[in-house]
Design a protein around this nucleic acid. Structure first.
Length: 210
DNA sequence: ACCCAGGGTCATA
DNA sequence: TATGACCATGGG
């Protein structure tokens, strides 16, 4: 119930966030890998480099030499490891037959497949599941843990999977809802919770005092 | 100058 | 299973 209420409070506060920015599912997937521990503004620069080089496709990325790819990815940080991860992902993506073929997999299988790629962990996999494949998978991130432990809805010691189950049980399996909620959590985390460590001064006050 | 961002892997114990 | 080191740019 707290989880549902908090969504309403955040949505009222911030409005729709229009996530995930990206013209195609593949662009969203690339962004998911590049945004690992990285500010989104830096990811946009890297994606723009790929677009400008006409290299925003799995085949092109795979056929590009490491140094060249790393140079395009440079603004997003960790460019050497991300060049490898992006190639790992593209290799898998092509082997699996691309978006249309992957879309035929059920949600559980698709998630397992994503997690088998070196460089794709739970959060990246779930970003791709939700925002590229539009599956009702709730994305957990550091903000989710921080905000909801701060308001006492969870302990904060839960594993990624435990938290995901908590949210998915509290909410209907609704892609549009999960999409908006995760984006709102990130928005709130950035705007308020970092600068104000105590939630009694933020817009979740009503939730905290329940 | 310092902190952290829309994390994940690997080595070590 | 649970820490710690490591990856690296850019904005505040």
């Amino acid at each position: 119930m707290r989880i549902k209420r908090t969504y309403n409070i955040l949505f009222k506060q911030y409005g729709p966030q229009h996530w995930w920015p990206g013209d195609t599912p593949f662009e969203i997937m690339v962004g998911s890998v590049l945004t690992q521990n990285t500010a989104w503004t830096n990811v946009e620069k890297a994606i723009n480099n790929l677009k400008q080089a006409n290299a925003l496709s799995a085949e092109t990325i795979l056929s590009t030499h490491h140094a060249r790819l790393a140079k395009w990815l440079r603004p997003s940080g960790y460019f050497n490891i991300k060049a490898k991860r992006l190639k790992n992902f593209c290799q898998w993506y092509v082997e699996q037959g691309g978006f249309k073929s992957l879309s035929k997999l059920d949600t559980k299988r698709l998630r397992e497949q994503l997690l088998s790629v070196n460089g794709v962990g739970p959060e990246t996999a779930d970003d791709i599941m939700l925002y590229a494949f539009e599956r009702p998978v709730f994305v957990i991130d550091a903000y989710t843990r921080r905000i909801f432990s701060r308001i006492g809805a969870v302990s904060g010691e839960e594993s990624y999977e435990e938290l995901r189950q908590i949210f998915e049980k509290a909410l209907k399996p609704d892609v549009a809802l999960y999409n908006e909620y995760h984006a709102l959590i990130v928005k709130h985390g950035k705007d308020i919770c970092r600068s104000r460590p105590r939630c009694d001064q933020c817009c979740l006050t009503g939730v905290c005092q329940e």
